[in-house]
């Protein structure tokens, strides 16, 4: 499928690369996002990447719609490369127990041990394909084939904030307590969304690379306390 432009009303355009969840499509989306950012066009308010598309919200009285469409089709040709905007993160997670109540069921459903589930998850570099559903909610992928499970038959009414969860080819971390139907494997002490940080309120942004690293419960408590007091900030979690 060739990239194409779709109208989302008179104040937004969507550059569509395809209709699947596909890492190669997402890499093109991120390349187009970076190419568009480099143009510094006046009149753009928001640029929203998804797995397969880039939606640009703009003011058509300040930026000509046809010109934007043309520029976007040029941006679509940008070669996928390591994004200048993308950051790498190493995210500490306490697995199992109360923090990850579904880990035994996931091990059983996949026919592996709990240790093997954790080891595989922590060995896999995941990409942030999209932030959506809730402010700062990252969709991460892709999981190895054998770790892909359908959602829970009955979603939980309240998933605790900071839970690491998986469903299908994707993982996510809940920035807020919310209803949720994904399998809960653990929790991170990190703050995923900080309303007081106006430059980058969400820890993770589309295109970022993420790996998880296991910690024990004591370390979780120690880090959670240090995050709460501001003793350590998010830059601690940037992968070296």
């Amino acid at each position: 499928m060739k990239p194409r432009i779709l109208a989302l009303g008179d104040g937004a355009l969507t550059l569509e690369f395809g209709d699947r969840i596909d890492q190669t499509l997402n890499a093109k989306v991120m390349a187009a996002r970076d190419a568009l950012a480099a143009l510094n066009l006046e009149g753009i308010t928001d640029v929203v990447p998804t797995w397969r598309s880039l939606t640009v919200h703009f003011d058509p009285l300040r930026l000509d719609r046809d010109r934007l469409a043309e520029e976007l089709l040029h941006c679509a040709e940008a070669p996928p490369q390591e994004s200048a905007q993308a950051m790498r993160w190493l995210i500490p997670v306490v697995f199992g127990g109360e923090s990850g109540p579904d880990i035994a069921a996931v091990a059983q459903a996949t026919g592996r041990s709990e240790a093997s589930v954790i080891e595989t998850l922590c060995a896999t570099e995941l990409r942030v394909f999209l932030i959506g559903f809730l402010p700062g909610f990252p969709y991460l992928g892709e999981l190895p084939d054998w770790l892909r499970l359908p959602r829970l038959k009955s979603p939980r009414a309240a998933v605790p904030a900071n839970s690491l969860a998986i469903a299908g080819a994707q993982a996510a971390i809940y920035p807020w307590q919310s209803p949720g139907g994904w399998h809960l494997l653990g929790r991170t002490p990190l703050r995923l969304f900080d309303v007081d940080n106006a430059t980058r309120p969400a820890l993770l942004a589309p295109g970022d690379a993420v790996r998880f690293t296991p910690i024990d419960h004591n370390e979780f408590e120690r880090l959670a306390a240090a995050v709460a007091t501001g003793e350590i900030d998010e830059s601690e979690w940037r992968a070296k």
């Binding site: 929203v48 990447p49 919200h57 309120p201």
Partner: peptide
């Protein structure tokens, strides 16, 4: 609240 939709924050 424009400018934050890529981070999941509604307008």
């Amino acid at each position: 609240r424009p400018g934050y939709r890529h981070l999941g924050v509604p307008l």
